[in-house]
Simulated assay, not measured.
Amino acid sequence: MSEAIPGAPRYVEIGYLDGQPIERYDSKSGKMHPLTPWISHSVSLMENYWEVQSSLAQLNEEGFEHFTVILERYYNGYDEMGTGTCFVNEFSCKDGSCILWGYICDMNEDCRDGSDETPGLCNIGGLHTLQCVDGCELSDDGTEKLYHREAYDGKELTDWDIVWDIYRHRKGFWGQTCIGWLRRHLEFQKKNLPTEAPDVKLIHRPINGSLETLICKVNGFFPKDINAFWLKDGKIVDDENIHVKVVPNADGTYQARLTIQVDPTEAQHYECHIDHASLNEPLHKGWRWSDSAWPIVGSVAAAVAVGLVVVSGLIFYTNKPSVAPSEQPADETAME
């Protein structure tokens, strides 16, 4: 392996709740620690939670390092591999025998000639990234969803299970299932974070002579649930070009943006409807022409799904450029 970038950890594992980071482990500290005060209360039912999670993350770190070597040899080959007739999930030893890919470079000679543990095979160069997402979602209707995704060198893998055992490198939800922790964390989050009403701005941006973009920008609200839509002359606008996106802020609140393209001569007929737990009643804000944004106070409500996710990544550094993974798993787990 090449040396790590100075000051940067080779392995990082972060847990998220609705896009907000709540816990973190990295190879430099060797410890899992909380990123928000209320999380320690939520996990207090499990004795020594942080010590156990630190140990599990350390095991994952070792597993990621091993898996990265396997993926590099599986996808890019190795000149000194044997020519035996092996199955797709098997490594061809130099003497022609076959072993499972997961057995190479594990410090045990499984090939009869020991060719699965040679330095040339097990020492890979270049910059390589391995990213894993384990998570779960809980929808308003009670539907539960678990997921697991992998990416190697920025490309999502669809056949990683051919060469690796999923349970050797994924988030361990000690003491609860992923959905169990999700429900508990949501309860503690709501108890410890007060409802916040956002600042809202209405903005218009010209596209051309026949189109304007109207933007209803909402910032600083909590909880995340949002119910926001455009009205035209008091009727809900059903338009596939309308986009609503909610993203987290660094302070634990959320922001949302609702956009629509309209004829500039009809902009005054549009209103932004906002409903949120912080409001006594839904807010309707009619459009007013101005060269500056119109500030209002409000918030947004009604999420499709909330999620608990753990993201993990291992990076080996040398001369390949880093590629960001695609977003964001199947047993009661969250993400690695």
Rank of each mutant, 00 (worst) to 15 (best):
E196T: 06
A250D: 13
L121V: 00
S139D: 06
D238V: 15
A293Y: 10
H243E: 06
P6W: 10
S292E: 15
N89E: 09
G96Q: 02
G175M: 00
I203Q: 11
K285I: 15
P119R: 08
E13Q: 13
N108D: 11
W164D: 03
I260M: 11
Y152A: 04
L17Q: 01
I226V: 08
S115C: 10
E271I: 01
N76P: 02
V310G: 12
S54N: 07
L231T: 09
Q189V: 03
G15V: 13
W101Y: 15
N319Y: 08
L71H: 01
L45F: 11
C105W: 02
Q255H: 07
C178H: 01
F316Q: 13
T318N: 08
F91R: 02
T36V: 15
D238I: 14
Q189G: 06
V133A: 12
P37M: 06
L283F: 08
Q268S: 05
P198H: 10
P119K: 01
W289P: 02
K171V: 00
D26C: 09
F173L: 00
N208V: 07
S278I: 03
N89D: 14
T318C: 00
I207Q: 13
T213A: 05
C93S: 09
E271K: 10
S312C: 03
T253H: 07
P198G: 15
N241R: 12
S210H: 09
